[in-house]
Design a protein around this nucleic acid. Structure first.
Length: 414
DNA sequence: TAGACTGGCGCC
DNA sequence: AAACGGCGCCAGTCTA
């Protein structure tokens, strides 16, 4: 446990050799498997293309937003239906997935385009490029760097922080990230770290109580607002992104008025957190910057802009930076301390970081010893007003991970 | 033909 | 115009 806070600079310095080791070690990719996925997806894509041309009556470049917009808006007039409001971009009506979703049911081509986009994205971003990037042992090596603005790490060439997980098809790609023979992948992720950081920084008593008693913050919000869990999650996350009633209405597909009642309900349920958000904006406007727990500053001169759009964007950053940045700092501290704890880490190298998650490749016979130590170090990195909780998962690949129950306190004396 | 820009979308 | 923070990568398009 840290007595006094280190500087951002000293953390980044200590982190550097850790990152280089992770990059050097890399992660094993099942190249043969991914090549069979490639064939399957390429077939699917060709068939979808055929069906789209048939539905529309002529061929065109489906992946060109310009041509696609021409087809669905100028030719088919799908934006003209009642109650449909398609967002505009600088060059015309948007053809993004959220807008196409509003058109579902109005024409059979919409579902085909959404599927085409999903398959095409996975094929061109992951399935085809990744096998080209492995070394002679089929391992992938990314490059990590702390980001200048946010303090978070970024991963590039290839980016291993955006490997699909959300859809079933996406998980077929994640399955290609495998544990080498004799090892197991261990994932340790901070549970709701941003929300805990908000609770700590704001000292909102209701939030503190939820986290101190092992409660469920989404359930709490859901109950307080009388809304479903999905909507409650959107509100909980949206608040620290500085969301508007408009944005919440869009993402939940509810009316603006309804979205506003959700936001008002949130501010009523967590009044101290609400005041804290106001204070973040005020402080940043007065000082000219937003600041994290370790004092990383982000200059925000736009807070004084007379352009409302520019000013609002800066206000959202003033809210988000201290929260996202502080969470990133907690993770960086963990990344420095965990390898120290596992002093001889040839048994269990840390190989990946995805913002709130660390992945280790652990020799099977070391799992029982290593797992509780990783959790203990991560949870003890710093003392906040509420506990930090780490969830552990293990598996043969990155798609098929199962929760590893927390060690029980031995109260029965067996 | 290379590089910049735009829209789009994968993750947290 | 765009409307929710932080990233990196892709295809298509535009421009020098």
């Amino acid at each position: 446990m840290l007595k006094t806070l280190p500087s951002v600079q000293s953390v980044d310095e200590a982190l550097n050799p850790v990152l280089r080791q992770m990059e050097d070690r890399g992660v094993l990719l099942d190249v043969g498997y991914l090549e069979t996925v490639a064939v399957d997806l390429a077939d699917q894509l060709a068939e979808l293309e055929r069906q789209i041309f048939e539905a529309v009556g002529h061929p065109f470049l489906i992946s060109s937003p310009k041509q696609l917009g021409q087809v669905i808006y100028s030719e088919l007039h799908l934006d003209q239906a009642d109650g449909v409001n398609i967002r505009k971009k600088t060059t015309g009506l948007s053809t993004g997935a959220a807008e196409l979703a509003k058109l579902q049911g109005s024409h059979p081509v919409i579902d085909l385009i959404l599927k085409y986009r999903e398959v095409g994205k996975l094929l061109s971003t992951y399935v085809l490029p990744l096998p080209q990037l492995v070394d002679s042992s089929n391992r992938l090596h990314t490059s990590y760097a702390p980001n200048a603005a946010s303090g978070r790490l970024s991963s590039r060439k290839p980016n291993l922080q955006n490997i699909p997980i959300r859809t079933e098809l996406g998980r077929t790609i994640r399955r290609a990230f495998i544990a080498s023979p004799g090892t197991i992948l261990v994932s340790a992720d901070y549970s709701q770290i941003e929300l805990r950081v908000i609770a700590h920084l704001s000292q909102d008593p209701t939030m503190l109580e939820v986290f101190q008693t092992g409660g469920d913050i989404h359930a709490k919000t859901s109950e307080a607002l009388g809304i479903g869990r999905r909507a409650a999650k959107a509100v909980n996350f949206g608040i620290f992104y500085g969301l508007s009633a408009y944005g919440l209405a869009e993402s939940l597909a509810v009316s603006r008025e309804e979205a506003q009642t959700f936001i008002d309900g949130y501010l009523g349920a967590y009044p101290v957190a609400a005041a804290y958000i106001d204070q973040l904006i005020r402080q940043a406007r007065e000082s000219g910057y937003a600041e994290t727990m370790l004092g990383k500053r982000r200059l925000l001169p736009e807070l004084s802009s007379h352009n409302e759009y520019i000013r609002r964007a800066a206000e959202r950053v003033a809210i988000n930076h201290p929260i996202q940045g502080t969470a990133a700092e907690i993770m960086k501290l963990a990344m420095v301390l965990v390898p120290k704890e596992l002093a001889d880490h040839t048994c269990c190298p840390m190989i990946l970081q995805v913002h709130d998650e660390l992945i280790f490749e652990v020799q099977a016979d070391h799992l029982e010893a290593v797992a509780p130590r990783v959790v203990k170090v991560m949870e003890g990195v710093i003392e906040l007003a509420i506990p930090l909780l780490v969830d552990l998962e293990t598996g043969p690949n990155w798609a098929e991970m199962v929760a590893r129950p927390r060690a029980q306190k031995n109260t029965v004396g067996l």
